[in-house]
Write a protein that binds this DNA or RNA. Structure first.
Lengths: 270, 270
DNA sequence: CCTTGACCCTGACGCAGCGTCAACCCTTCA
DNA sequence: TGAAGGGTTGACGCTGCGTCAGGGTCAAGG
């Protein structure tokens, strides 16, 4: 007769595992000797080895009991199900590996390559790192909502960087965010540039992202993001309102209301 | 401002997950509104998306906090460690798949192919299924102890099946185990055959499994196994003792003690 | 005004498969 | 006789949430 330790050693498992199998009813509790020790016979050894064989093959403990009693047909069926589970799990891990391979290179977190190059372009233009990070976070928001369509936005964004006004805008924003003294003139200049760009795009019949977007939540979030990053964004919103635009993250005209520049924000139509 | 449900929906996670991240300090608790609801801003959305990006890549939650703050070098180091973990896990699952592929075919549980064919040979010889199962369980025990060497035993076992006495032995054992009326003459015949085989092997200078085995525990277990399967095995031990052999699972002579066939079992030497 | 349904809140258990104390008993050897 | 090295039960810990239970809140419709 074997003690629990001998049994466990023979089958190559831990004592704790054997007790666990008792607890879940997978291995029957054996007789106890006079001092309360469990005493095992050879059948227990065989059962335990069978259990470990199935467990090592990836069968969950909860199903091992059934499989040991099953006939050949349902055993095979059970094996098929386990294999499906294993394959699915492997596939999950493989895709995780692809993900972290992409994490290892790139802008810290997974963004489409076009966006990563766009951010690098901004850095190359001397744009402040904080502005670049803000841009990146903004694109994270946009990519989360439109993972498939976000790449289509990028050629337009790259084209904009050819316009000296846009470059100037980014530089002014960099100065604002890095600047110590609160210089309202820089904010006004930025607002003027943006309003000018908006006017031109609007006149050309462009709307934001080619007019394909009807869900405004990401833009609201972009505005919040800017506000949370720097409270002076509030002033930008005000300046854009004065120039007839509803904020600066979306390209949307305010209804004309010339005599009350500080009135309540009009509701956006549906 | 977003509610927890809106936040979760935007990032594609469950509300419960967001609360979990609060609980473990991965995502900071936001302000509450008048009714105690959590209210989130855009930075929370960005943080949550970053968290999910890493989590989906297989990073454990406990390390995500650190990785989000890490510089490029330690981020890369972290990524490497995660990838190692993932590869190890995949390898484990792959080997599980191999295991269950072997389970699907074969004698129910993984045994070397030689043993499986040996068991099939027994079936072909008309040996009772219960005897075959007993043999299989016995081989499970032996294989667990000597997984590498067990295959080397098999050619000898196959050769034995050429001997009509061995075949007769298996058939007698089958009759015993299936038989209703307790027929001692069958037991005696089986013992006679076994003793004869042992004598001959012993005279030829053979010991069990070529004398390579010095660990007797598996043989003790085999004997227990037989006893647990059928108490008449006790009688077999007795009959073999009378014929000068210490049991029937190992080939070991008793010291001569002709006048006391029922004496206490002598201790085996070291 | 009341009801309904969809949210939100906290707190707690459950899952797989054991590892790891804690606190105590049994056996064996020096 | 005492220390080492077994054994015993019981309980918490780990991961990443799912899923009650037992409430409160919000927006809209009858």
């Amino acid at each position: 007769m074997l003690t629990i330790g001998q049994l466990a050693a023979y089958a190559g498992v831990t004592v704790r595992a054997v007790r666990h199998y008792h607890q879940i009813g997978l291995l029957p509790e054996p007789e106890r000797d006079a001092s309360g020790y469990r005493r095992y016979g050879a059948t227990a050894v065989v059962s335990l080895i069978k259990i470990r064989t199935l467990a090592d093959a990836g069968v969950p403990l909860s199903r091992i009991g059934g499989m040991l009693e099953a006939d050949a047909a349902s055993f095979a069926e059970g094996v098929r199900r386990i294999d499906d589970r294993l394959r699915a799990e492997i596939a999950r891990l493989e895709s995780s590996r692809e993900q972290i391979a992409r994490l290892a290179s790139g802008d810290g977190l997974v963004l489409p390559p076009e966006i990563v190059s766009y951010l690098d372009r901004l850095r190359g233009l001397g744009v402040s790192e904080r502005i670049v990070e803000g841009e990146r976070d903004g694109w994270i928001l946009v990519s989360a909502r439109w993972p498939d369509r976000v790449r289509a936005f990028m050629p337009g964004k790259f084209a904009q960087l050819e316009d000296p006004r846009v470059v100037r805008l980014y530089r002014v924003l960099s100065e604002i965010i890095e600047g110590g003294p609160d210089d309202d003139r820089l904010l006004v200049e930025a607002a003027d540039i943006m309003a000018g760009l908006f006017e031109q795009a609007y006149a050309d019949g462009q709307t934001e992202f080619g007019g394909t977007v009807h869900d405004h939540q990401p833009f609201d979030l972009l505005e919040s993001l800017a506000l949370e990053a720097d409270p002076r964004a509030e002033r930008m919103v005000e300046l854009m309102r004065e120039r007839g635009w509803n904020g600066w993250t979306r390209m949307e005209r305010l209804p004309r209301r010339p005599s009350r520049p500080d009135g309540p924000a009009p509701k956006r139509p549906g």
